[in-house]
């Protein structure tokens, strides 16, 4: 087709027009209930966050280093393949995340969908919201709080696989010696969040 590119240059779409068409598609697809997973990217001080929601609520927040394409593939397999970028549907959680990261609010309160965490892991991540802004808990303390005092290691695994970091504050769970411990976003991000909450 290269020899005829000159003939058809007028068919190409302006990137702004494409964005406008995609936004309208997202609105129409949402009204027609055709979207299993709506997603958007949200800027943060530590890179782009991927935020995704089902009909029930926010289902996944992923850090840049997890690879957004890989996360979308995982969501398509585990939730449903009708995955569509639909920023308007995520306006509320986006605004609250912005406010949280700017220190203007201490909790992100949105409907959540915990289907990506099951069994014990689900119990653990659900208990995270009891740890308030600016406070920390050790893995052992959280294990006791969920009634499995000897499961500190399993609690650590559950926290590392928390599908909703920031909304369910797994960064507030640290090692008993006070060092941060592991984090899906990386230890540097965990340190940033702990310092952010300690400063405000």
């Amino acid at each position: 087709m290269s020899a005829d590119d000159d003939l058809f240059a007028g068919l190409d779409l302006d990137p702004a027009d494409l964005a406008r068409l995609q936004d309208r598609l997202a609105d129409r697809a949402t009204s027609a209930d055709l979207v299993d997973v709506a997603w958007r990217e949200v800027d943060s001080p530590f890179g782009s966050l991927l935020v995704a929601a089902t009909r029930r609520g926010v289902v996944k927040i992923a850090f840049e280093r997890e690879g957004h394409d890989a996360v979308l593939v995982d969501l398509a397999t585990r939730v449903g393949s009708r995955v569509l970028r639909a920023p308007a549907r995520l306006d509320d959680v986006t605004r609250q995340l912005d406010d949280y990261l700017a220190g203007r609010r201490h909790t992100v309160e949105v409907p959540i969908d915990l289907r990506l965490a099951s069994g014990f892991r689900r119990e653990v991540v659900a208990a995270l919201s009891t740890i308030a802004w600016g406070h920390t808990s050790s893995y052992g303390e959280l294990a006791r709080a969920v009634g499995h005092p000897r499961a500190a290691r399993a609690v650590g695994t559950a926290c590392a696989q928390n599908p909703l970091p920031l909304v369910l504050p797994c960064h507030r769970v640290v090692r008993s010696d006070g060092t941060p411990g592991q984090y899906a976003g990386g230890v540097a991000v965990k340190r940033w969040l702990l310092a952010h909450e300690a400063a405000a």
């Binding site: 979308l72 593939v73 398509a76």
Partner: peptide, 29 residues
């Protein structure tokens, strides 16, 4: 997995410009 197990966006949406070229070729801009 088959393509139908992959996320619609970006797997299908990245062909947006091609789809537009096709409909414009038939219908004009």
């Amino acid at each position: 997995p088959g393509v139908n197990d992959l996320p619609f966006d970006p797997v299908a949406t990245r062909h947006g410009p091609t789809v537009m070229r096709v409909v414009r070729a038939v219908l004009g801009p």
